[in-house]
């Protein structure tokens, strides 16, 4: 299972990086969100994939899963949700104001 996850994470990283390196702003945003997904999967995998009951008192199971990575991933998902939506709004505004979503044209100049 870990090997499968490793491949999945690797592919997500690859696709994310590829998208971030492209010129269109929309693709870049999609790339960042894929990248963060990859990181979340990485966090899940690195803290060992094992089965067990939810770490709650009522479960009375012999084997519990580690709650910490899940808490971390949840926090990270929330943050990336907020940031991505902010990024989207900003990209849209920038597109309206600047009339382009091509990063080549968003370079800026030295003499400003």
């Amino acid at each position: 299972m870990e090997i499968l996850m490793a491949f999945a994470i690797g592919i997500l990283f690859m696709v994310g990086t590829y998208l971030i390196l492209s010129r269109s702003l929309l693709r870049i945003i999609l790339g960042t969100s894929l990248l963060t997904h990859a990181v979340h999967l990485l966090l899940l995998t690195m803290s060992r994939l094992k089965t067990g009951a939810a770490p709650l008192l009522g479960e009375k199971a012999g084997n519990y899963v580690d709650p910490l990575p899940q808490a971390l991933i949840l926090t990270s998902i929330v943050i990336s949700f907020g940031v991505t939506s902010f990024f989207f709004v900003l990209a849209y505004r920038a597109y309206q104001e600047l009339g382009t979503d091509d990063m080549e044209q968003l370079r800026g100049h030295d003499d400003e």
Partner: peptide, 20 residues
């Protein structure tokens, strides 16, 4: 924002390795 999103992603990845 782009550079900071990427560095945050790397931050979480490093945290994952460290925790492992």
């Amino acid at each position: 924002i782009l550079i900071n999103i990427i560095s945050s992603a790397l931050f979480v990845a490093s945290v994952a390795y460290l925790y492992a």
